[in-house]
Design a binder for these strands. Sequence first.
DNA 1: CTCCCGATAT
DNA 2: ATATCAGGAG
Length: 217
Amino acid sequence: MTKRTKAILDKLDEVYTREYKCYLDHETPWQLLIATMLSAQCTDARVNIVTKELFKKYDTVEKFANADLKELEQDIKPTGFYHNKAKNIISCTNTLMEKYNGEVPDSLEDLTALAGVGRKTANVIRGNIFNQPSIVVDTHVKRISKRLGLTKEDDPEKVEFELMKVLPKDHWILYNIQIITFGRQICFARGPKCEECFLTDYCLEYKEKNKKKKIKK
DNA sequence: CTCCCGATAT
DNA sequence: ATATCAGGAG
């Protein structure tokens, strides 16, 4: 790990010390799996509103596996992409019943083989449920890792592999939740609050912004 | 690369 | 009007 990377991680640790919680409400592994599937291109706040009722109505994996497609679509509609998500949830939970005795598997291969589960969702499960070091590359991690110059890649899988090289393994899971928190509070996609940011010394975009200002003056 | 897609902020 | 939100599949 370079000095620069360590300085960034130290700053993050300083501000987001024990903010280690998952923002998707869940009580079981399969609930987190479904909540994460629903979170694609949707705010976690909305996912939590939907799952609050959803997990009362479907309180077992088996109930999801036997759900009526059209009815489930309506139940999850506010999260968007509801045709695909409903179909995937039914297919995925059927696989859980048939191949895994209704449990959620822990390997990346088994998880990504499930319908509607890609590397991002699989890594959320591995990190949060099984405590396996894993890098979750979502929209926040990708955007902010680029701004901080930790990667130049655009493809989420390449970002994941590069961050695995750059970040110490014992910081992988923590990095995810820190960056998501940072992205929600300060480093927005649109109009980031650079005045309140504690990482401007390491931000490539901030550097660019100041260059342009100086030229104008 | 395109499509899936509703809700909210700007 | 448009960008963005804890992405994934064909």
